[in-house]
Nucleic acid binder design. Sequence first.
DNA 1: TTTTCATTTCGGAATCATTCCAGTTTAGTA
DNA 2: TACTAAACTGGAATGATTCCGAAATGAAAA
Lengths: 157, 157
Amino acid sequence: MKMITREELIGKLKERGFKITPQRLAIVNVLVKRGHLHPGANLILEEARKKTERVSLSTVYATLGELSQQGLIKNLEFDQLENRCEVNLEEHINLVCKLCGKITDYHIPPSLEPKDIAREAGFIVTDARMEYYGYCRNCTTLPKRAHAGRQIQDENA
Amino acid sequence: MKMITREELIGKLKERGFKITPQRLAIVNVLVKRGHLHPGANLILEEARKKTERVSLSTVYATLGELSQQGLIKNLEFDQLENRCEVNLEEHINLVCKLCGKITDYHIPPSLEPKDIAREAGFIVTDARMEYYGYCRNCTTLPKRAHAGRQIQDENA
DNA sequence: TTTTCATTTCGGAATCATTCCAGTTTAGTA
DNA sequence: TACTAAACTGGAATGATTCCGAAATGAAAA
């Protein structure tokens, strides 16, 4: 499971015209070192501050937003819980424990059956969530559809 | 794609000791008729009120919570957007359009490759989200782990 | 090195979906 | 018809995230 490195992240930021600030460095450090924790904004803030850096929560959010826009990390949203971010961009399934909430990355190759996952990862699957994001037929077929500001809509009755 | 019926839903509620109130009926009606829209709390409120029912937003949330706890619907959470609920509980993938936001249910049987989905559903996949929820090894192995109130945690470094 | 300025950061206020709560109403039973 | 636990209401509270104007600063150019 290769993970993006500190240097790759910083390099990409620099190369795309972002300034390398102490705050961004601190945040990137946390992401690289604690990426497998799927940290949320507050944990990142805390950790970044431990490393004797001056950072604000606004900055953490801003930076996570930039990184995510740049496709360098991904955001996970949870019900009733602080969102988390995901540093590992390889295709995988997040195994979220309903008791302790631990999130484990499960890499897909071998098989896709819940039973197999249970067996291999010692995880009992009771519920699944799968979403593919992309572009629907309308939006790829219609000529230049003015998409009213990314409002979620749905097939009309 | 069979969908749960009004009668099934009401039957299950009654049989589990829930009172059948006009508010619950109105909400169930919306879910049954507009389930494929993946409606959010506000849409449900609006629709329920159209049918000349007196309902409050609190009640909509409460009822959705109950239905979801009873396993009769599912909740979908979205970034920056009102959550939606899902009435179709058959295993499927939600295809969420990044432009118009339309959500389409894609039923899994045939295959699982993004390319195939693109071809069959006219949907171009750029991003995937998959999560399995359940119980991790610790929580099934350890003897009666006092799980500190369902706080999300994670593997420690 | 200094100057310069667009970018970044800060922190406090604003937002907004969702939850909570205390008081009122009501479904369903006897 | 009366009774009571369950349900409903609306307004306040919550809490993560976003917004915003002002202050600070990276890094390119002089």
